[in-house]
Structure formats: structure tokens, C-alpha cells
Nucleic acid binder design. Structure first.
Lengths: 214, 214
DNA sequence: CCAAAAGTACACTAGCTAGTGTGCTTTTAG
DNA sequence: CTAAAAGCACACTAGCTAGTGTACTTTTGG
């Protein structure tokens, strides 16, 4: 949605082509989300991308291909964003509650909202010929979290016998619920999201924090 | 899916009509789930229901109406099932872990699987003119759970300052994750579901059980 | 400047689908 | 038995959409 149209100036022969391609994918993504796969006509996509229908077909061949490319792009963006959120927020030395809250909040508000994750779920539930890309998108980020949780357990901050399970529980309590909230009410009320995340982190820590030396 | 076709014998003038109607809704539900709203043609629905297309239109007028009626039916079934699961499994005297596990398992395996809840989510994410029925389906069961959790807190078994939040967390940790599992892998591996539920109940109790008089 | 690449405008096909009209047959109530 | 209700077979329209073919224009590298 927020992807730029990019490179209006002197694109060079190759870059111009890529620019159009990106514009088509932008338009397609928006329309697939808004209308669903079937209802988003190729004519509408072309119009929105300000490109001729013929160009669309020259680039992608058939409609299904457009859809797949959109999925790939969204998937890449999502995985990358979660990756960097883990690396930058879930740093070893930091206070656990603070780190987890920041991580959850960042994933939901920066990466996702009005976008990638929700987008992905909505899109994948549409098409009936999508290879198991859908599974992958939740598997990969979860593996990354799993590793961090294992490290935290080793460091004595967490008590997660099964880091994989802990990661799933964390995701369910924070990101999952936040996305649910975003999904049902479309009040992009950021305050509410923050509350949901904070509450989730709270419950998570009660269940998984090492019994304190109070 | 598992709804019976019902009343093959001497239906009476009225009952015969209702029988056909139900058969049409059964067929429509199955096809909407399998193919999505757009791709499930009225002809296909009629064929599957073993009914003439004309009869379909005589009963429902237009395709969108069929969809709405299907949603209503699924919604009613779901709410009813959760209701009775709460009343029959989450009984006051019972051991908490046992009760919660039985409840979660029942909701996922009896009510839902191969059906209502997943069905509902899949369906509602399809149509772009569904009034906020989608929200209602998660609101109602959650309110019911909330009440029980409040009672359990009053009885001293739970420590849920905000019973509504506790209910959301419980649902996310157990039912939500179980459905996720069912959704990605279609291995209807019941054993795995049971494990997921048990793990979720475990984490929930660690976060919400009253600090024990060990 | 020029040739090729990229893009455009537009007309056209082939197929599918929602919804209707109509006359015929079956079922059921009284 | 009979009339009406319910259902059926079938033909037909109107509209939309994926995808193609083609001749024309614009852009860009050398």
C-alpha cells in the first residue's frame, strides 16, 4: 500500500520497465485486498497502475502470476521486517518486558498495520491454488523468535522448556490478538493496540518468566 | 458439512419445501468453503443439492441471500455449541485444568473441526458486503466465557482482574492456536490438537491461577 | 539520427454466470 | 378426484472478464 511508485526521472530502459512492473504490483495488491482475487479485474489493475492492459499481460502473462508475485513481495517484506525487529529490539541485555513490548508493538504497527501480515492472511485465504506459501510465512518468523527465546532461556531470563512453544504462545498473546483487534474494528486506534500488546506481554511473562529471586 | 439432508419420507407439503431449502444451504455451504463465493456458481449449488436451479431462485431470490442464510446458520450453530460447551464442561466444582482442557478440546474438535468456526472465518473473509456479523461471532462466545471466568475469580480459583482479557487470552492460547494448526496442515491429527490445547491451558494457568498455597 | 525496446489504443473472441420466462410434471391436501 | 403448491427442464439474455492480435507511438541507447 505504502510502496512508492519510484523513479520518475530518467529511468533508463531497464529501470522504466521495472517501474511499471512495480506499479502494476502495487495496484494489484491494493485491488486484491479491497475486492478479492476474482473481483479485481485485470482491466481495473491496469487502470489503477496507469498502464495499458497489454503491458500487464506482456509482463506477467496471466492473472494468477500477478497474484503470486504480489504474494512473494508481501512475504519478503514481512519476513524482512520481522527479522530486523528481532535483531534490533530483542537485544540480549535489555529489560525483558520492555524488549518484548517494543518488539510486539513494532511488528504490529510498523510492519503490519494497514499492511503486510494482515494483507497476507487476507490474500492467501482467497486463492485456491496457492502452494503452501501460507504456512511458510508464519513458520519463518516463528523459527527466528524461537532461537531468541532459547537464548533467553539459556541466559536465565526466561523459563521456556520448549522455546518453539513459547514463541507460539507469545505470538498468539500479543501479535495475534492485536491483529484480531485491527481486523474486526477498523479503528486504527494505536492506543488500543499498545494496550493489547502490553497485556499480552504481561500474561506471557507471568507464564514464562523465571521464578524470581524475590 | 455434517448436517443431514433429513426427512426423506412423507414430508408434508411444508416440510418438503424446508428440506429442499436445507439441502440447498448445505450444498452452498460446502461449495462456498471449497471454492469461495465467486467461484461457487448457482448452477453448481443446485446440482449438488440435487435441485433445479429454478427452485434455488424461487427460494432465495439472489445468490447473496443464499450466502447470508448460510452465514446465519453457521453462526447459530457455533454460538449454540460454545454455549453448551461452557455450561456442560466448565462446571463450578470441577478441577480447573481438567475443565479448561475439556472445554477447549470440545470446542475445537466437536464444534469446529471440519466446521463451524473455521468455516465462518473462511466465509466471512470472502464476501465484501457482510455486515459486522463477523465481529459478533467472536464477541458472543467471549462474553459467555468472560462471565464464567469472573465467577471463577470470585470463587478464588482464578486470578483474573479483567475477566474479559483473561477470556481473550485463554481463547488465543488454546482454541486460536489449535485452529491455526488445523488450518495450515490439514492433518486432522487429533493427537496434535489435544497437545496444543493442553499446552495452552498450561500456560494460561501459569499466568492466571491464583498463587497457590503450596 | 535510427533502430530496437517498451508501451499504447483498441477491437475482438470465447467462455462463463446471474438471473428470468415458460410450459410441463409431480406431489399433496381436502 | 382435483386443484393448487412445489418443483423441474430448458432455453435465453445480458453482462462481464481473461486473454490475444495488431498497428501505431514513445522512449532510449549507441
Amino acid at each position: 500500500m505504502s510502496r512508492a511508485i519510484a523513479a520518475v526521472q530518467t529511468p533508463g530502459r531497464r529501470r522504466r520497465s521495472e517501474g511499471k512492473k512495480a506499479a502494476i504490483l502495487d495496484a494489484a495488491e491494493a485491488l486484491f485486498i479491497a475486492e478479492g482475487y476474482e473481483r479485481a479485474s485485470v482491466d481495473a489493475i491496469a487502470a489503477r497502475a496507469q498502464v495499458s492492459k497489454r503491458t500487464v499481460y506482456d509482463h506477467f502473462g496471466e492473472k494468477a502470476t500477478i497474484f503470486l508475485k504480489v504474494l512473494e513481495r508481501v512475504n519478503d517484506a514481512l519476513v524482512g521486517a520481522v527479522q530486523s525487529a528481532i535483531e534490533e529490539e530483542l537485544t540480549p541485555g535489555r529489560d525483558l518486558r520492555e524488549a518484548l513490548t517494543a518488539f510486539g508493538r513494532r511488528v504490529v504497527t510498523q510492519t503490519v498495520p494497514s499492511s503486510d501480515y494482515v494483507t497476507f492472511r487476507r490474500l492467501t485465504s482467497q486463492h485456491w491454488a496457492v502452494p503452501r506459501l501460507a504456512g511458510a510465512v508464519r513458520e519463518r518468523p516463528e523459527r527466528m523468535l524461537e532461537e531468541r527465546f532459547a537464548a533467553l532461556t539459556a541466559g536465565g531470563e526466561l523459563m521456556a522448556a520448549d522455546p518453539r512453544l513459547a514463541a507460539r504462545h507469545f505470538t498468539a498473546l500479543t501479535i495475534g490478538l492485536a491483529l484480531d483487534t485491527l481486523d474486526t474494528q477498523d479503528s486504527k486506534d494505536e492506543a488500543e493496540i499498545v494496550t493489547v500488546i502490553a497485556d499480552g506481554v504481561d500474561a506471557f511473562l507471568r507464564a514464562y518468566r523465571r521464578p524470581g529471586p524475590s
